[in-house]
Each structure stands twice: as structure tokens, then as C-alpha cells.
């Protein structure tokens, strides 16, 4: 197991944003993290990526307990996060964006040759073929292309886990397909991906595992083959699962079968 969360809790004042979250992320798989607004998806992501560390609980990375206090810690471990706003500079071209902050230098000057080659390679590795030129400014790219550039940038280092926050929100059909393809490419290269999504069609298209959050806890998680759309929707909306007892798989989070009432 690449990443294992145990008993992660986080509260903001009197609001319990995360309570006793357990989550397993195997290497090289795509895990979809779904849940309604306010269910705690973003808070959980921020806990993993070091933006807002949890109050309690353990993060186990490749079998060792680690402390992720800052985004830098997460990057050092190999956890890359692609936020919804992508954090790209529209006025810079693809190469410049990809290397922003860790430019290759040669004799103290920017080594455009190496950076351009490796950028092209990185995009090719993700099967991004629609980009006309890596010297195109990012502002002129389509939404899907921008997403692809942001992903390529994130995995340019030695990322082993990529977290993507709503990568297909606001994208058209073609663009969504392209982004889902990029996600599939990541997994096939052995990189684990956590995708936050509202779009269940996307989830079922690309994910192998699913984790459903409800009011700050994991309502159910497991292999996607054990879930169908109706069951996921039920977990998202009620936090409960009428078939959980029968199937017996939804309780990996420890609370899968409970009713929507508070603990």
C-alpha cells in the first residue's frame, strides 16, 4: 500500500471537518474521492498535501509513518497536487510553466534546449498530442490542455502520488476525455492518482477504487467493481448503504453501514 491514512481528524473550531478518516491508496491505481459539498474531500486532500496538517491520526507512506507539515514535505515524499485553479501563468509558454521554480541552468543561464526537450518528452509520455507547440503560451490552450500541462508539471519531479482536485469540472466532452486519458496514462506508469470528482461518469470511466466521504468520514471505500452508480449515490447522499451488510465490503472505513444520523 503506497499511502495509508489512519484515524485522521481535523476540526476548525467547533466544526469537525474530518473524523477518524481511514483511507488506503495502492500504488499505480486511480482512486476516486467522491462526496457532496462539505463532505470533507478538500480538507482531506489538504491534510495529505501539507497545506493544513491534521490534528490527529497517522499518515503512513510506503509503510513508514510520516509527518507532512508543509507542501514542501509532501513534494519531497513524492506527493504532487494539482489544484483546481491549476496555478499556471497564462503569459508564459508551456516550457516556461513546466519548469517554473526549478529551471534548468547552464552556465548560470536558462537552458532552454534541455527544458524544451524534456517538456516535449513529458507531454508525449502523457500522450498529449493535441498541443501544437510547447512554445505556445498557456493562455492560448484549451481547458483540457491546461489541465494536462498542470499534470505534466506535477509529475515532472519524482511524484508517486498525484492528487487532482476536480480535474474535469468546467470541461467539455472532448476535453474531459483527454484529461481522463492523461489520468489513465499516469496509472499505467505506476503512479497512484487520487481524483476528486463530482462527476460519477468520470469516476466510473477511470477509477479502480472509490472512496465516498460523508460529513467528514469515509462512508465507504473499496474496489469499484463492488460498486455501481446507485450505490455510490446512496452513500454520497445518505452516508448509508442498504446493501452494505450483504456485500460486506463497504465497511473498510469502519463506518460504512451506519445511518446518516451523526455518530
Amino acid at each position: 500500500m503506497l499511502l495509508r491514512l489512519r484515524g485522521i481528524s481535523k476540526s476548525f473550531g467547533s466544526v469537525q471537518a474530518l473524523s477518524q478518516v481511514d483511507l488506503d491508496v495502492p500504488a499505480g491505481t486511480v482512486t476516486a474521492l467522491v462526496g457532496d459539498n462539505g463532505a470533507g474531500k478538500s480538507t482531506l486532500i489538504k491534510a495529505i498535501s501539507g497545506i493544513s496538517p491534521p490534528d490527529s491520526g497517522e499518515i503512513v507512506w510506503k509503510g513508514h509513518e510520516v509527518h507532512v507539515r508543509t507542501p514542501r514535505d509532501a513534494t519531497a515524499l513524492g506527493i504532487a497536487t494539482v489544484y483546481q485553479d491549476l496555478a499556471l501563468c497564462d503569459n508564459l509558454d508551456i516550457v516556461q510553466n513546466m519548469w517554473l521554480g526549478h529551471e534548468r541552468l547552464r552556465h548560470g543561464l536558462l537552458d532552454e534546449t534541455t527544458m524544451e526537450r524534456e517538456t516535449r518528452q513529458a507531454l508525449a509520455d502523457l500522450s498529449v498530442v493535441t498541443v501544437r507547440s510547447v512554445r505556445q503560451v498557456v493562455g492560448s490552450l484549451s481547458g483540457g490542455q491546461r489541465q494536462a500541462v498542470a499534470v505534466a508539471k506535477a509529475v515532472m519531479g519524482k511524484a508517486e502520488l498525484v492528487i487532482m482536485d476536480e480535474p474535469t469540472a468546467a470541461l467539455g466532452v472532448t476535453q474531459t476525455a483527454m484529461v481522463l486519458d492523461v489520468i489513465g496514462q499516469l496509472a499505467s506508469r505506476g503512479i497512484a492518482v487520487i481524483v476528486i470528482s463530482h462527476n460519477l461518469a468520470d469516476v466510473f470511466a477511470v477509477a479502480e477504487r472509490v472512496a465516498v466521504m460523508y460529513l467528514g468520514r469515509i462512508a465507504g471505500q473499496g474496489s469499484l467493481s463492488d460498486y455501481d452508480t446507485q450505490r455510490v449515490v446512496e452513500l454520497i447522499t445518505t452516508g448509508g448503504d442498504s446493501r452494505a451488510f450483504a456485500a460486506g465490503v463497504a465497511s473498510a472505513g469502519g463506518s460504512g453501514a451506519r445511518l446518516p444520523g451523526r455518530d
Binding site: 493535441t130 498541443v131 501544437r132 507547440s133 505556445q136
Partner: peptide, 9 residues
Amino acid sequence: PLANGAQPS
């Protein structure tokens, strides 16, 4: 080659 990035090439 700026703009017009959508053409698969």
C-alpha cells in the same frame, strides 16, 4: 506557432 492549439498535429 501560437494560438490555434486545438489541431492535433
